[in-house]
């Protein structure tokens, strides 16, 4: 295990931590969602990097021959298609949850008047204390 063989994973971990830091340290909900997007992209990158084969090409067959007799060249190295498929799903699901998260942030803004998390928590606590006897 050397720098030359593992530095990709370490850079990806650094990116992950940058995203995680934004989620934890920033009070603004929209900024947190941006950090979450960064975190998500770097996790996807980690999985995709595991599927790469050195000297391999994209997992699309190189066809030799013409028309109906075209035959794929199975002797060259291809990258593993399974992580790509899983990460395609992950990207699309990520955008779906991002859209929902942003919609929730808009409603929070309309209900509480702010999107800073500590102010929202304070208002929530004050509301609950005023409601419960």
């Amino acid at each position: 295990m050397t720098l030359a063989t593992h530095w990709h994973y370490w850079m990806i971990i650094a990116l992950m931590m940058a995203g995680l830091h934004i989620v934890i340290a920033r009070p603004n909900y929209v900024k947190k969602l941006m950090g979450l997007a960064i975190f998500q992209v770097s996790v996807i990158m980690l999985y995709v990097s595991m599927g790469k084969v050195t000297g391999g090409t994209a997992p699309v067959y190189e066809m030799s021959g013409e028309g109906h007799d075209a035959v794929p060249n199975l002797d060259i190295a291809y990258s593993n298609p399974v992580p790509h498929v899983l990460m395609l799903t992950a990207i699309v699901v990520g955008i779906a949850t991002m859209a929902l998260g942003l919609a929730l942030v808009v409603r929070i803004k309309e209900s509480y008047g702010t999107v800073e998390d500590d102010v929202v928590i304070e208002k929530n606590r004050a509301e609950e204390e005023s409601l419960s006897p």
Binding site: V48, K52, G56, S79, P83, H84, M87, L88, I91, V92
Partner: peptide, 9 residues
Amino acid sequence: MTAVDVAFT
């Protein structure tokens, strides 16, 4: 990283 479909998406 030769993940062309993922890059496109």
